[in-house]
């Protein structure tokens, strides 16, 4: 019953030549979503990600324009190129969404995250923690005789690296804000 006997990918115009959907090309993208600051808007965005099986690596949200009732949601997500495109389109069609920017493809962008790290220790470990903090330009925002709270700003990778160093030195707790990002230039 194979009436035409056309082989898969027989035409150079076949849609399937463009991209193998099973290829393990997972990309990380930072999206800036400008939304109307209405009740439930964050739940709507998160519900889209969970309902359709997309990943959220980091999520930051705050009102950025009080008079205009606008909030900025910065979300770092992972997926194949097709999934990333789909995420942007799904976000873009939501009623309270004004704009969706893919900062990963729209040109260079600045990405920063703020973290607070509590490190407890005595003796050499305490001195080493303070020394490393200086190297990483982390500030001490709280101190007792047995602990520090460091505040640092940087890329997620920098914070990861600092946290990894602090772990053997007595890292007790870490609080991170998630990524905030803006395009460079005007």
């Amino acid at each position: 019953m194979n009436a035409l006997n056309i082989k898969r990918g027989a035409s150079s115009h076949s849609a399937y030549d463009l991209r193998d959907p099973n290829a393990p090309v997972i990309e990380s993208h930072t999206l800036a979503v400008i939304v109307e600051n209405e009740p439930g808007v964050l739940a709507r965005v998160i519900g889209l990600f969970s309902g359709r099986g997309y990943n959220i690596d980091s999520l930051t949200v705050a009102e950025t324009d009080h008079a205009g009732h606008r909030s900025r949601i910065t979300v770092v997500t992972r997926g194949t190129p097709a999934v990333i495109e789909q995420i942007k389109n799904q976000l873009g069609r939501m009623v309270p969404v004004y704009e969706v920017h893919d900062l990963t493809v729209e040109g260079p962008a600045v990405q920063r995250e703020l973290a607070l790290l509590k490190v407890a220790g005595k003796g050499d470990a305490r001195i080493e923690a303070l020394r490393l903090a200086e190297i990483f330009r982390a500030n001490v925002v709280d101190s007792t005789l047995e602990s520090f709270v460091f505040e640092m700003t940087g890329t997620p990778e920098k914070i990861d690296a600092f946290a990894d160093l602090m772990r053997p030195l007595g890292l007790k707790d870490i609080a991170r804000t998630g990524v905030a990002a803006l395009p460079r230039g005007v």
Partner: peptide
């Protein structure tokens, strides 16, 4: 994967 393989 076998949907209309020869078409634009």
């Amino acid at each position: 994967s076998d949907f209309s393989p020869g078409s634009r």
